[in-house]
Design a protein around this nucleic acid. Sequence first.
RNA 1: GGUCCCGUAGUUCAAUGGAUAGAAUAGAAGUUUCCUAAACUUUAGAUGCAGGUUCGAUUCCUGCCGGGACCA
Length: 598
Amino acid sequence: MQPICGNMELISQIRTATSQALMALYQHELSAADILVNETKPEFEGDYTVVLFSFVKPLKKSPEALGNQLGQALLEANPGLFTAFNVIKGFLNLTIANGYWLDFLHREHDNQAFGRRPRMGKKVMIEYSSPNTNKPLHLGHLRNNFLGWSIAEIYKANGYDIVKTCIANDRGIHICKSMIAWQLFAGGATPESTGIKGDHLVGDYYVLFGAELKKQVAELVASGMTQETAEKEAPIMKAAQQMLVDWEAGQPEVIALWKKMNSWVYAGFDATYRRIGSDFDKVYYESNTYLLGKELVEQGLQKGVFEKEADGSIWIDLTADGLDRKIVQRKDGTAVYMTQDIGLAVRKNDEYHSDLSVYVVGDEQNYHFKVLKLICQKLGLPSADGIFHLSYGMVELPTGRMKTREGTVVDADDILDEMVTEAERKTREQGKTDGFTLDELEELYETIGLGGLKFFLLRVDPKKRMVFNPEESIDLHGYTATFVQYAYARIRSILRKEGDAIAGTVTGGLLPLEKALTSTLERFPAVLDQACQEMSPSVVASYAFDLAKTYNSFYAEHSVGNAETPDKKILRLQIARMTATVLRTALNLLGIRVPERM
RNA sequence: GGUCCCGUAGUUCAAUGGAUAGAAUAGAAGUUUCCUAAACUUUAGAUGCAGGUUCGAUUCCUGCCGGGACCA
């Protein structure tokens, strides 16, 4: 049986105590994990509630009688933990002892690492961002980057060793389209000669390719060709396809151009990554993994995992697993996406042997990753079972999906600039920045602007599609990073005045808001655990907002600096200090910084 | 055609099968001699439809309606 220990989280202690009491009272065996414990709803007396229904039936007792016996037993067995209980219908409401909260604050108020767990030697790989090198990043990439980075941090906080990776989709027909258009129309333009950020410059030629293709197709259709044939026969399309063949053949001029244009794109991406704080421990390049993928397909063919059609294309039959047949190599021998993903999975396994390999990729690829995992399992890849597709929903506009062709794509760099500008405008409006240096102001605008965007994109459950309305831009009031940052800045202001002499031991009771805050703080480690299990930064965002909101109510109601008694002052300083620490940790896990003043 | 996902206040989001479905925003009404009003307080407003399982369903099952994605 699991012992109750002092620094175990409260909710776990209640579960364990309940499990023990059930055994002592009725010889009823129920594991702590199966006992439902919630926070007590505010309209009832108590702090935590044990939901009794699940064991009412096997014990053949009325909920009231069971609740009263259990409550009594819990009180007697854990006098330091519970002081009172009441039973309403099937709910046993427990009141936590005052001393428990005071001990907790005394023990943890100065713990800068509160909520973080020690390393335990398990390795998690998280692949995210994964851009194509033919155009700049957009809002959807930002959701991806923020999610991947944040989930890595959340795993780290829960004691895992993290490897952040990125696969650059640096080869294929899409790159060739940009290259052809650049050859045709650029007249040698470079990022240096134009002053345009490299990823945008290359993206511009990708767009030009599309425009030129459309024009050529229209001409061919006008001369009697079908739309479908025209798209294949258009000279610019044929040129792009020829270029892909030349690339695969290693033709020096094509390779040189490819390297040059990709280097422009990487320089552009790096600038954006630096600004948003995305970083990677290891970057893979598709151009390096697709050949390995083809080898593995060949091996799989020998093993009988794959089968070859008469036309030479290679397939896997997954009908027995409830899926379809899926192509893994084209009839001309070229690689499909799946081919290189197999190569990448094997390479990751060889290099890192991670216990879990997370792919942060949009939900349009759900089927693809189901197939990838199955293929890896059938190929006998040791880490295949650890493959997990973290599937997130698209970011949509009120009018629907962002579409390149309709020019409705929200560019990443643009939206970052807009957010920071908006942060600057609002900050000036507030007029509270006396004594800030120019650098400090600059930093504050970035902190608020980027924080706002990150919070906005992370506060929604990753699995769900979300809507972004560029007209309304992003609010800096309500459920936002700004709200949390503001609470933090107000606490820091108090702590600057009052200093750090807050280590004293406190006696006496807690007012409702003092207790609510302490209780919320106590939940933080459990919240981080939940966020990790659900791979959802939104859990952390929601918690941070909840804590900041409770603190703001507390702040409006009670004075810290002019507390009624010296004991109250120490108590409130401990609460304030710990609230600041937890708010900072929570926002940092979302990639959001906190300002000392704002 | 097949597979999968999603429908909650005007809007954007919550709710491991549990108590009277929470927030935010927009709306209405208030709060500045006192630690930062980017704040606080009060107020009104929602589970697509029809069945089923259950002591109890936003949650699980079936059908329908509506939206989306993927596979050819």
